Amino acid sequence: MTDDVRNIVLGVIAAGISASLGWLTRSHLWRRRLRRKQAFLGLPGNSECLLVVNRDPGTDGAVHRNDVFALLELSALVKDCSAHAQIVSHDGARQGFGERTEFCVGGPGSNRRMAAHLQSLLPGVKINVDPEPGPDRSAFQVGSERYRLEAGSAEYVLLARLTGGQDARPVFLFCGQRAITNQAASRYLARHHERLMRKYRNSSFVLLLKVVNSQAYGPDVVELVGDVTRTAQAPLPTPVPTSHRAAG
Rank of each mutant, 00 (worst) to 15 (best):
I8N: 06
V9Y: 10
V9G: 03
V9D: 07
V9L: 04
L10C: 08
G11D: 07
G11C: 12
I13Y: 08
A14K: 00
A14S: 10
G16P: 02
I17N: 01
S18M: 09
S18C: 14
S20V: 13
S20Q: 09
S20H: 14
L21W: 08
L21Q: 03
L21S: 05
L21K: 00
G22P: 11
L24K: 12
R26F: 12
H28S: 09
L29P: 01
W30D: 09
R32H: 02
R32F: 04
R33A: 15
R33L: 14
L34G: 03
L34V: 05
R35A: 15
K37G: 09
K37F: 10
Q38L: 08
F40R: 01
F40V: 05
L41S: 07
L41R: 06
L41V: 09
G45R: 15
N46G: 03
N46R: 10
S47R: 11
S47C: 04
E48R: 15
E48H: 14
C49P: 05
L50Q: 04
L51K: 03
V52N: 03
V52K: 02
V52E: 07
N54Q: 07
D56Q: 03
D56Y: 01
P57G: 04
P57D: 09
G58M: 14
G58E: 10
D60R: 03
V63H: 02
V63P: 04
R65C: 02
D67K: 03
D67E: 02
V68R: 02
V68Q: 08
V68Y: 01
F69Y: 06
A70M: 03
L71F: 05
L72F: 06
L72E: 15
E73V: 06
L74H: 01
A76R: 15
L77R: 03
V78S: 07
K79E: 12
D80H: 04
C81R: 08
A83D: 02
H84Q: 12
H84D: 09
Q86P: 02
I87E: 11
I87W: 11
V88M: 09
S89Y: 13
S89L: 13
D91K: 00
A93V: 11
Q95M: 13
G96Y: 00
G96K: 11
